[in-house]
Design a protein around this nucleic acid. Structure first.
Lengths: 100, 100
DNA sequence: GACTCTGGTAAGCTATTACTTACGGTAAGC
DNA sequence: GCTTACCGTAAGTAATAGCTTACCAGAGTC
């Protein structure tokens, strides 16, 4: 069920851009917004949904909030994709054996 | 770029249900629709977007169209998630070393 | 050849969503 | 204490998306 939230959160291009930005390392809201063609509140909203999907965590340092990648959401997504991938390969194998 | 289409296609719950149905094996549009609380045209539309994301392929057998899972879209998604996962673990390692 | 069963597509409606500007709130610097 | 910088949230809007019903097309059946 959790992978559903991850998929929904990462389906939006700009929200995915926010997430990819964090791939390079932690960043503040302002820093993320500076590298994107959207306003800072928009980034803040995206970070909220990413937080709710356990894909991101934040840590307050004074007034600045440092965001970084959080593993649980990504792990749930990874496990689901991996399991699906294995099943797909298995099905393909059966299909290939049927059609020589 | 292709993984973006996969993510967008799999973000919708009912479309993901269609995809999961195909995990068990190939099925026709009618069969898929019978197992879901939506109409047959809705399923047909979902299958179209799944097709465009290379997540599904279809094979006509008379009037019946047999749908099954297609690997390219799933592979693109898998590769992206896997790469991201590895980076996230690496970042976490660096973070853990910083904070003893 | 008409009928039936299969499926895709068009038109329309509703609900969601991603964005903006405006506001409020907290920590640091003078 | 007042200003400045950082951030989150509220309100409102425009676009998108998922669903339905209705219609159209092709392959098999009598």
């Amino acid at each position: 069920m959790a992978y559903g939230n991850s998929l929904a959160a990462l389906s939006d291009p700009t929200r995915r851009a926010v997430f990819e930005r964090l791939r390079a390392g932690p960043a503040t809201v302002q820093q993320i917004a500076d590298g994107l063609p959207v306003s800072r509140p928009a980034v803040s909203q995206h970070l909220k949904t990413l937080r709710e999907a356990d894909l991101v965590r934040h840590e307050a340092q004074g007034t600045a909030h440092l965001y970084s990648i959080h593993t649980p959401g990504l792990r749930a997504l990874r496990d689901w994709v991996e399991g699906f991938w294995d099943d797909a390969l298995e099905s393909f194998k059966l299909y290939a054996e049927d059609k020589p």
